[in-house]
Every structure is written in structure tokens, then in C-alpha cells.
Design a protein around this nucleic acid. Structure first.
Lengths: 254, 254
DNA sequence: GATTGTCAGTTACCATTGTAACAACCTGGA
DNA sequence: TCCAGGTTGTTACAATGGTAACTGACAATC
């Protein structure tokens, strides 16, 4: 465990970053953008900025921050996956986004004094926590950071609009296909002819991303499985066929 | 079923807790944020920046930019209202946001080379069009601009997440209440005991904001009208009772 | 003043989705 | 080992919302 963490940390700090970025490039634009902030933070005289800090770690299901919290802190993820979402007035959860190592979590505290969302660790997560006032100092000192920050917000905003779009137009199956497609682009790893999603998600969590009941996800996933679009086993990782997924979400006519 | 709705509405209204969300504060804050970019642009040596430029004007229903366009231009609204949205794969329109004088439109071109959204004038609109490369110059030269830009993105993102939230949790009536409440905070004008929304919106447009069929909006609006939550006449402006609306929609993302 | 187009209101019908309930299975801990 | 709790698969029934169709009202144009 400790070994894995230290490896993850040093990979960020050493020249392995180039490799990481290259991998992200191969993976697609999304990943690259996600990492922009950390890259900017890690550049030049800021190199020691993140590395000199103590890691804040969370175990699976730990709440990194919660709705209504007044802490104004950015969390830079060194390792592990985090879900970002909110709890609706009727008590159900909605997941807006998944974040992974290289991403930042809690960025909305930049403009909000009270957290409108929560972030929960999907597995053991190591982060560097940076209070807002320090973020502000760094932003003021390094324009590149600003640009990176704007990029992060811009892309997150585009994704959010995309979610609204799919919610407005599509039925459960297409929404699921959309979510899986985005997941694959974002965190997927090529595994032979298919893309593996390297984090175990329960159907309940997938349902919160798709914004539908778990039962619908169960049947929809089975439909996709029968059509060879996805592969999975009980409590196993998802493998998706990107091409078939995209074909599915592109269908303009029923 | 209509009875159930009405009962739900009335019960929500009756136990309205006297929470002083301070409509004026909310309104003030929103307006301030909306104007942050323009304010930043107008500050100091940039005072003449906007004023020295030619105005680009649009008539009602003119497309300011469209999905897929490759122009990378910011539009600073000097006067008039603009709707921002997108067309879904099934052909229906979704409205993400309304913008008014003091706001910016087209900001997503900062991170996207191809417009993912459209913007359409709801009435005669005067704008100052600024190409992205100039925006970049100004951002680099004036850190205050950057901060303002980040603010704009942050708030827009929070709004977008709020929309996802309400889409996930609420039925048509509450979503409508949400939309009206946001509209009132954003563009409303105090008119006696109620707040007037100073731009005429067809039910079809409201439906695109609520993400529902026009027919539902018709009945939902009538329900609200019968309960005294809103007032309107055919082809007339909407007047809304903010307190009752907030009680109804129980804004989790206010 | 007739015509045309847009907008609002309403209804019956149907498709989709949520609700509730249960059974089967797996995993981890007592 | 067995049990408890979590995960998945599946069904019936109810509720919600979309579809389609029609009406009346108004405004602009000719």
C-alpha cells in the first residue's frame, strides 16, 4: 500500500510526468485538460509546491468534503478515484463527475463560501490539500495557473451542459451509453479490443451518474452486454466497446 | 392527479418557513457577479476598451453564434436579453441560461474550438464582439480580468450543476418553480409585492428552460397562477412571488 | 375585414420510468 | 462455518410525462 502511494507520488514529481501526459494525450483531450491544473502547479518554481506538502489521505467511502461545509480548500488528487456529486432535496444522490489522480476536487469553493457539492473517495485516495488563500496567492503569482484554472472550469462546464443535454433528450439506455462513453474516455485503459474502466462502480453509483433508478441500469447493462457493447461480471470491472458505444449515442433515429 | 398536484403545492406553500434568503442580497450578488467581467473590462486603462469599439447588434431571433461555429469571439452584452442553449440529437432545443446587459456570451470558446452551444437574441440586442486572441491579451495583461473570468465560469458551473440536480429530483412543477425563481433573481425587477420578469418568454421557451413539453408548462403555470404564485396574462410579462416560489422549489442550490 | 401564423389551454392515449418487492448470489466478519 | 449485509437480476403496478390532436384568442399583414 505505502509502496503504491510512494510510487504514485514520485511519478507525479519526477520526469515520469512526460509519460503520463503522453498517455493522456493518447487517451484523449479530456484527460489532458484534467491534468492541466496539476501540471501548472508542478511547473518551474512550483515543483516543490505540492511535493513539500503533507498528504491528506482518505479511505474508501470517506467524505472529503460535504454539502454545506465552509472549508475553502482545493484537493489535488495524487492517487485514487473520487466521486463528486450532491444530494437532492428528495434524498437521492446525483454524481456529477469522477475525478482521478492529476485532477483537482473542490474547485467550486473558489466562488462559493459554502460547498454546494460533496466529494467522496471511491477507494483509498491520497490528496494534497491547499487552502483557498494559498491558491489565490499562486494564481496571482502565476498567470499560467490562472489559464489552467479557467481551462478546468471551462471543460467541466461543457461536460455539465452535456449532461443536461442528454438528460433532456435521451432515454435511459442512451444516457447510460453516454456515461460509459465519457467514463471510458476519461479514466479508461485500453485492454485489447475494448476499454477497461479501472475502478469498480456499483450499479447504484452508475445509476447516480446516469440519473435513473438502479433497476433500469441493471436491465440496460444487460441489454448492452447481450449486444456485445459491454462486458462485465458480478462485482467485476466494466469493459466497454467504444465504437459500439459511440454508434449507440449517435443514433438519431430511435 | 391534478388534485394531488394542487395539494402538494398548497402544502408546500402553507408551511413556508420564513427564511430570509434575502431576495435583495441574492439579487445583488448575482448581478454583481454577472457584471464582474464587464466591470473588470471597464476598469482603469481599459475604460475605453469597450466604449471605443463598434457595436454589433442583433434583431429578435437573430443567431449570435451557432452550434459548430468556429468563430472564437466573446460577446459583451450592452443591452437586451440573450438565450444560450443547444439543440439535442432529437431536434428539440434546451435553454441553459439567459444573459442580459452586463453579461458575456460565448465564453466557452475559450476552451473549445467549436461552439458546443448557440446564442440567440430574445429581442434587439447590442453587443461588443471581442475576438479570443484579444481576450487572451487582456487576460494576460490584467490579472483582475482573469479572476473575473474564473468567477463567471464558477458561477455558471454552479448553476449548471443546480440544473442537473433539479432535473434529477423534481417533477415538472418544481422544476418550473426553480426556473422561475432563478429567473426572478437574475433578471427580475421588484414590482410592488411581486417580482416582474422584464422579458417576454413564450411557454415554449420556458419549457426549454424547464426541460419539459410546452403543454406541461401550460398546466403547471396555471396551477401556480391559481395558487397565487405567479400572475400573467396571455402574451404578457410574468410576475412571480419570490417567497412562495422559494417555498415551493426549496432551492438546494440557491 | 379576411387571412395567416403564433400562442395558450386542454384532452385522451400511450411509452417510459419510478416503486416496491423478492430471490439469488457473493463477501466479509463473527 | 454460517450469517448478515450488500449487490445484482427481475417482475408487477403506479405515476409521470410525452404525443397528438384540436380549440380559441390574438396580432400582423394584406
Amino acid at each position: 500500500m505505502t509502496l503504491a502511494v510512494r510510487e504514485a507520488v514520485s511519478s507525479e514529481l519526477s520526469n515520469k510526468r512526460g509519460e503520463q501526459v503522453a498517455a493522456d494525450l493518447a487517451m484523449g483531450r479530456q484527460a489532458t485538460i484534467s491534468n492541466a491544473l496539476c501540471t501548472a502547479f508542478g511547473q518551474g518554481s512550483c515543483t516543490e509546491f505540492l511535493s513539500s506538502r503533507r498528504l491528506t489521505s482518505f479511505r474508501k467511502n470517506d467524505v472529503i468534503y460535504n454539502v454545506g461545509d465552509h472549508d475553502r480548500v482545493f484537493f489535488f488528487i495524487k492517487s485514487g478515484f473520487v466521486k463528486v456529486g450532491a444530494t437532492t432535496s428528495s434524498g437521492s444522490d446525483v454524481i456529477y463527475d469522477l475525478r482521478r489522480s492529476g485532477d483537482v476536487v473542490g474547485e467550486l469553493c473558489l466562488t462559493e463560501t459554502e460547498r454546494p457539492d460533496w466529494a467522496i473517495a471511491l477507494e483509498k485516495v491520497e490528496t494534497v490539500a491547499v487552502p483557498l488563500y494559498e491558491i489565490r496567492q499562486i494564481l496571482a503569482a502565476k498567470p499560467a495557473m490562472m489559464a489552467a484554472m479557467i481551462d478546468v472550469f471551462g471543460h467541466t462546464l461543457k461536460d455539465a451542459y452535456g449532461q443536461i443535454n442528454t438528460l433532456a433528450a435521451d432515454g435511459t439506455v442512451r444516457r447510460l451509453a453516454n456515461v460509459l462513453s465519457v467514463l471510458a474516455r476519461k479514466v479508461g485503459r485500453q485492454a485489447g479490443p475494448m476499454v477497461e474502466i479501472p475502478i469498480y462502480l456499483t450499479q447504484e453509483e452508475i445509476a447516480q451518474m446516469v440519473v435513473a433508478r438502479r433497476e433500469r441500469i441493471s436491465t440496460a447493462l444487460n441489454t448492452l452486454r447481450r449486444n456485445g457493447v459491454v462486458q462485465y461480471t458480478t462485482r467485476g470491472l466494466l469493459m466497454v466497446d467504444q465504437d459500439k458505444l459511440e454508434a449507440l449515442s449517435d443514433l438519431s433515429f430511435g
